[in-house]
Write a protein that binds this DNA or RNA. Sequence first.
DNA 1: CGGAGACCTTGTCA
DNA 2: ATGACAAGGTCTC
Length: 332
Amino acid sequence: MTTKWHKLLCKKDQLQLLGTLNGGQSFRWKQIPENQWLGIFSKKVWILKEATDAILYQVHAPNSTKTSPKKCNEELSNYLHLDVDLSEYYPKWSEKDPNFKDAAEQFYGIRILRQDVVENIFSFICSQNNHISRITSMVEKLAEYYGEKICDINGITYYSFPDVEKLAADGVEQHLRNNGFGYRAKYISNSAKLIADGGGNKWINELQEMKYEDAKKNLMTLMGIGAKVADCICLMSLGHLQAIPVDTHIYQIAARLYMPKLGKQKTVTEKIYNEIGEFFRDLYGPLAGWAHTVLFCADLKKFQDNKVETAKTSKHKKQDSKTKINSKKLKT
DNA sequence: CGGAGACCTTGTCA
DNA sequence: ATGACAAGGTCTC
């Protein structure tokens, strides 16, 4: 086990750990003392902290796992999507949209992570109609029940996210039902079986090769995955940075600030869903999903506590409507 | 094709 | 304290 700190060069405006790791993209990161972040990806436990023009990190993995500094640097850099230079985009998005410019002050350095596809498929199935805190505990349970132990740190055992085959096994649905997963237990079990029957890794590999529209369509054939969850997976795990997950936050933002005609709409139909996506793609360009994530962060309640309340934010504070996302499956 | 309800469970707010 | 309501929606009718 390595406990040495490694260094990955990275300017401050290129990466903010708080908004990126705790902004609802991944459910595998926790803030720990001394302003450090502990998270799990690629079957390793990572501890990160910000330093001047760099990220310092530790890697914890089983002794059998290779953790050469070079390989770890590459893995972390890839996970954080550091090949995209935000200084090329933030000014452009700010120029096109004053709302983005406002959000970007607090939410500089927000990055779309390159997350594991399988983990995100099941994490975002859990996310529907649910709170981030509960989603996090459900993802942790999936890892604990069906994943593999990585290591212990300070008396806590960490587990990797399980393979699809583990989730496709008999008895999973009942087991999850008994452990607080509610109706999502069936979605997880059925989707895992659908993927396994479709070839398992082969199905996943083919998904990764598809273009955005095809990948989205295929994801929506799984149970419990509609347009929004499919777009989350496309954006955060398949590199389709034009994908715009239209959730309740983004719908509210769109109706309030960009598309006033939505005001009276009670449900988000497939048509409305796609219109909102097209609107933002038209506004921000090919990396619209990335820009949208900055707006999403700015709308998260947990990030608004330490923010100075302005007349503008307080005015809209309590006006969330009863609008439900109701986009239906695309017909092929 | 669009609308209306149901759905597990937990956190939050009055 | 207790109930209503919302939570990064989706499925079914």
